[in-house]
Design a protein around this nucleic acid. Structure first.
Lengths: 191, 191
DNA sequence: TTATCACTGCCTACTAGTAGGTAGGTTGCA
DNA sequence: TGCAACCTACCTACTAGTAGGCAGTGATAA
């Protein structure tokens, strides 16, 4: 079989770059410097930037939604689940060399300059997140931990978009501290 | 004095491009094609991309905050003011060839690949928006149009980040309709 | 009235560097 | 022997930015 190490290393480097500077500022040259491999060799694994992006979005979605599923399956109340969900975003923000945004949040901004495959992958990511958030909110409503006016589905969309927006803006101003203050405020509005 | 027409046309073209595809996918070549002027002539007006970005952020901030000030000065209730504030973002989204995001929201994503001047300009934009939003929220609280737990300042940050995030994501999925549903939901949570 | 001057706006032609991508060869392992 | 992984060397297209020229304008002065 294939040695997955190099392929994984390429994906890791690409993801890190995109989360910090964006997909358009990320290049095969940059990746090659990080991985320690020639630019042409990256093309061996990912023939085009579009195929790389597609696989990256798939992998990121799988990993992230896996963590969300763990939270949902855990034996804690819905309010705690929602807090932990938000902390997934916060963890990304304070990860590594810091100021990393959600991969899909970054790509959302640049979506018009990306291929159609990327856009479809992003949509799937949004919807899967909102579906899971809706479950948490419905559970909270049933258990009377959350009290809000409106549809859980719409609140789910609101929360997801808030977290994505907060991340992007926190990178330019306020950092993790600002992010945390806003998510805590969001929790208050649901009570 | 200088003829401002060409300079304005360059700024307009650059802004449109950034709002659609991002600052990194925007180039002097693209601008020159839109404006109908040679690439070198753009350098005559804006020596570097950084100076262009700086002036663009300044102009956008001035224009946008001017519209916000008009809303604040208008003789309507705070809930209406907040709705009109949100509709400024919505208008951008459905403007021109559509799917345009807030200039500063786009630049927030790419901030790490931009100069320091840009980052400072973005921070100013955030803070001025949040300051104005805080005024609206405080007025709403006094008049008992809004009922919420927490500091108006933090809610202001939340609303601003929500609107920026919503815009970016609505471009990839759901469009204006989705954006409107979420802002309407936000209004419900403040009551 | 006309010659000179500086200046603005725009041009052509160029630079060095970087982008994504390709052709074809080498190495080492099953 | 065949194939995967990686390489060197290259391509074309595009990037931001520069040098230098030229036409039009408006002020100055003989």
């Amino acid at each position: 079989m294939t040695q997955p190490d190099t392929k994984t290393a390429i994906l890791d480097a690409a993801q890190d770059l995109i989360q910090r500077v964006g997909a358009n500022a990320m290049s095969y040259q940059h990746i090659s410097e990080v991985v320690g491999i020639r630019k042409a060799s990256i093309h061996h694994h990912f023939p085009s930037k579009e195929t790389l992006l597609k696989e990256l979005i798939d992998r990121y979605s799988r990993q992230f939604l896996g963590l969300v599923d763990d939270i949902i399956a855990s034996d804690v109340g819905p309010a705690t689940k929602l807090r932990r969900y938000a902390s997934l975003f916060e963890a990304t923000l304070s990860e590594g060399r810091q100021n990393k945004a959600c991969l899909c949040g970054m790509l959302s901004a640049e979506v018009e300059a990306l291929g159609r495959g990327a856009a479809a992958g992003l949509r799937r990511f949004y919807r899967e997140n909102e579906r899971r958030l809706t479950l948490i909110l419905e559970e909270g409503q049933r258990r009377r931990e959350f009290r809000f006016e409106g549809e859980p589905r719409t609140i789910a969309a609101l929360i997801f978009q808030l977290l994505e927006g907060s991340m992007l803006i926190a990178r330019a101003d306020g950092g993790v501290k600002r992010f945390r203050a806003v998510t805590e405020q969001m929790m208050k509005l649901l009570r």
